[in-house]
Design a protein around this nucleic acid. Structure first.
Length: 304
DNA sequence: AACTCGGGGCC
DNA sequence: GGCCCAGAGTT
């Protein structure tokens, strides 16, 4: 196994060359894609796989090609267009961000990571990603793919820890190659390697360009440690909230007396039948979150 | 640091 | 059925 500095050099060459040959042809990577398209893609890709984002992203950019277009749209249209991408509050934040871009930045997506970070729904990852991918500013981009690739290649760990630490960010920054162009390519390349080869469950090490210098492979590819159970799904508030949103998407407006029947009729609840308290908690939460409004007659609908 | 917040496809 | 996915915001 090489010394750390040599390993880093080998990783740079191996991953950058691999990316040049194997990168997916994603529309938001097109040099002609405007920063707005990159921003929309990053929001949609938060916790949602590429294959599900692609069709929604195309329709979105065609319908709202600039921040000003989205800022002026009825929020109900925005939520409907979000469709089933999940976490619909992201759609609200994206429209709020578009309005802030119009008000604070003259309608142009800002390049500065701090200005991006100040927009609704944009955290440390997304701010860095937009700066790097849309504007060529070599910020340190660390998503779940980057965390996993670096955990394996540099530290020999099967999977990264539960939360991103400052030490991990510093290590990711230190691992970047010199030069803005190479650093920006590196950001995309490590993510792509994690998405296509160095995957969470069944990494394709036989196709990996850097298996010779990977600390995890060198250690014999030890299995990950037991991790605490993730959130359950069936019957949770998230499940019920999603079904309520689906009912409103399908009908546009759901009379108060028909809410439960309409939601059950979506088929999304399976066999689960919420208790009164859960119905009320979920609808109240959606109203509080601004994802629904209640009309004077009690009917539920999307806002605006 | 731990929690909530969708949804679908795959093992 | 559990697990994972280009995370963010709140507590």
């Amino acid at each position: 196994m090489p010394a750390p500095a040599d390993r880093l050099t080998a990783l740079h060459e191996g991953i950058l060359d691999w990316f040049a040959a194997h990168a997916r042809d994603l529309p938001w990577r097109d040099p002609d894609c405007p920063p707005w398209g990159v921003l929309v893609s990053e929001i949609m890709l938060q916790q949602t796989p590429v294959v599900r984002v692609l069709p929604r992203w195309r329709a979105w950019l065609e319908r709202w090609p600039t921040p000003a277009d989205l800022a002026a749209a009825p929020t109900a249209d925005v939520l409907t267009a979000w469709d089933r991408l999940g976490y619909p509050r992201r759609a609200l934040r994206l429209q709020e961000a578009a309005r802030a871009i119009v008000e604070r930045h003259g309608g142009e997506v800002p390049a500065d990571p701090a200005a991006l970070r100040a927009l609704p729904g944009i955290g440390e990852y997304t701010a860095a990603a937009v700066s790097s991918f849309a504007f060529g500013i070599p910020e340190t981009v660390v998503d779940t793919n980057v965390r996993r690739v670096l955990a394996r290649a540099l530290r020999g760990e099967a999977l990264p820890g539960r939360t991103l630490t400052r030490a991990e960010m510093a290590a990711a920054h230190a691992a970047m190659p010199e030069g803005a162009d190479r650093a920006n390519a590196w950001n995309a390349a490590v993510m792509e390697l994690g998405a296509l080869v160095c995957t969470a469950r069944s990494p394709a090490c036989d196709r990996c360009p850097v298996r010779e210098v990977c600390a995890w492979v060198a250690a014999g590819s030890p299995p990950p440690e037991e991790r605490p159970r993730g959130q359950a799904w069936a019957g949770t508030d998230r499940h019920v909230r999603g079904a309520v949103m689906a009912a409103v998407r399908e009908h546009g407006r759901v009379p108060a007396a028909q809410v439960r029947d309409a939601v059950v009729a979506t088929g999304r609840l399976g066999a689960h039948r919420p208790e009164d308290a859960q119905w009320e908690r979920c609808v109240a939460g959606l109203l509080t979150d601004g994802l629904l409004v209640r009309h004077d007659d009690g009917a539920l609908a999307f806002p605006g």
